[in-house]
Amino acid sequence: MSERRRHGGRNALLLVAALFALWQAIYWAVGDIALSSPLATLRYTAQLVTGEDFRMHLSDTMRAFAIAFVLSVVIGLLVGFWLGFDRLSGDALEPMIVTVYAIPKLTLYPILLLAFGLGLSAKVAFGVLHGTIPIILFTLGAVRNTRPILLKTAHVLKLSRPQMVRWILFPAAIPEIFTGLRVGFSLTLIGSLLAEMFASQRGLGYLLMNGIGLHNIELVMSVTLLIVVFAAAVSTLLLQVDRKLHRKG
């Protein structure tokens, strides 16, 4: 097991090194006008992160993201459990939800803006729109695929619905639900950032678009780097937990 993990770590390191090498190579090929070198970007990032302005943008993005994620989890679990229990509703609605997953949700953003106004709530709503769907789908699948023997045991013990959820379904479904949360986490982040890129006065997404407007390449690349590193790091961490949970199950 530990050997496998070491392999995973080595692969990840190799990959990061390769990506940086690629970046440097492209920089040499394209030059200063369109691209800043990895080193210059890192230096600029270090400078950016310590600035007062940046902290405001970051905290704005993080607040929208945090609220959106909490709402996604609550709504996703509730709807997921409902659709998992109610066979007819689940069968009827699951394909519809999958379809909604595939539409370009960015086009819905103007509607959210008109409904919620320009600001935090529209951003949160957009994040929730992205994040709930995977959580619903994974929870639904987990509840449906609970081993029948567990359900029989619950019947024998005459557990009530809430008791059954609390003591049987939820623990049995945790690995799957966690996968849903992992995917939901990433998508909520993507949703909040996209919302900021399209219409917002604050936040990291706004900072990116502002960078283009000012033709500030270093700013664009630094913010992109920060977002990518954060998303990849958290996702890798969650993936490790996810795999551990699934092994146990």
Binding site: G8, N11, A12, L14, L15, A18, V183, F185, S186, L189, I190, L193, L194, M197, L208, M209, G211, I212, V220, V223, T224, I227, V228, A231, A232, V234, S235, T236, L239
Partner: peptide, 19 residues
Amino acid sequence: TLDPLFATYYAVPVFAFYP
């Protein structure tokens, strides 16, 4: 080697590269 990339790929907002 590419496996970690594939595993985390869709967690990274690709649109962030658009600018």
